[in-house]
């Protein structure tokens, strides 16, 4: 399997030579089309990982390679979604979703001439996440879960090869969260996009991911890598099987001991 993301022995320090070392000796590989989850104690540099892969930060040592190119500037083949949906309140949901197209180099010059085609695409995405007909609403007229669905659409509109999710479901209630797990599961299955999910929720990681990386406390590095054995497509029922619970339990143990070491 070819790797879309390769992080090799990366150190990242904030605030000059005496600053905090956020990650140290970080090494991980994510294959093309794979769904990877990153879990770990809080402050383990998960957000730093997001920024390294997207090119928002350039590491002091080590290399980050995304799509066969070393990352030296922001990579526009990535879509990002955070816990905070950060929809712009003065734009309708549809216009919010179209925003990346106004930025990404290969779309921005075609946007005006091909508006109709792009709007159709956005509406199709809205339908996929269960927001059909909500495009004309303003984001603040939507519930938190609906905003997060729209946020996913915005992250996907420019057809990124890599989707980086930083605890996107953290602020939602349990039922909405499960619904969105299924949404993201189906998106992954249908679009073949590579996904890296940073999360605190071990059940979420186990349910969604093909591979789980367990990170240590600061400075963060990968302690252990798990392959999730459950067959796809997974049903929410899989979470009530013994094997599933055993895996979550094992992950929990690893993170608990990583916290103690720190």
């Amino acid at each position: 399997m070819s790797h879309l993301v390769t992080i090799d022995n990366v150190d990242m320090r904030y605030g000059g030579a005496a600053g905090t070392l956020a990650v140290s000796g970080l090494t991980m590989k994510v294959g093309k089309g794979e769904f990877a989850a990153v879990v770990g104690p809080s402050g383990c540099g998960k957000s730093t990982l997001m920024k390294l892969v997207t090119g928002l930060h350039i590491p002091q040592s080590g290399v980050v390679i995304v799509a066969d190119k070393q990352v030296t500037k922001p990579v526009s083949i990535v879509g990002m979604a955070f816990q905070n949906p950060t929809m712009l309140p003065w734009r309708t949901t549809l216009d919010n979703i179209l925003l990346p197209l106004e930025i990404v180099e290969r779309h921005r010059h075609r946007l005006r001439a091909n508006k109709k085609e792009y709007v159709e695409k956005a509406e199709h995405l809205l339908e996929t996440v269960g927001l059909k007909g909500f495009g004309s609403k303003f984001p603040w007229q939507l519930s938190g879960g609906m905003q997060q669905r729209a946020n996913l659409c915005r992250a996907l509109i420019h057809e990124p090869e890599l989707l980086m999710l930083d605890e996107p479901f953290g602020a939602l209630d349990a039922f909405t969260r499960e619904e969105l797990w299924c949404v993201i599961r189906d998106l992954h299955a249908a679009q073949g996009v590579t996904i890296v999910l940073v999360t605190h929720d071990l059940r979420e990681a186990t349910f969604l991911a093909d591979r789980i990386f367990v990170m240590s406390a600061r400075p963060g590095k990968v302690l252990k890598e798990h392959t999730v054995p459950f067959a796809r497509p997974r049903d929410l029922e899989v979470m009530y099987e013994k094997a599933f619970n055993d895996m979550v339990h094992e992950l929990h143990g690893e993170i608990a001991s990583a916290r103690v070491v720190a």
Binding site: V78, M80, F82, L99, P100, I103
Partner: peptide
Amino acid sequence: EPETEDVLRALG
């Protein structure tokens, strides 16, 4: 919001 800025900067 820094997240908004990150999302946009990552897109170039």
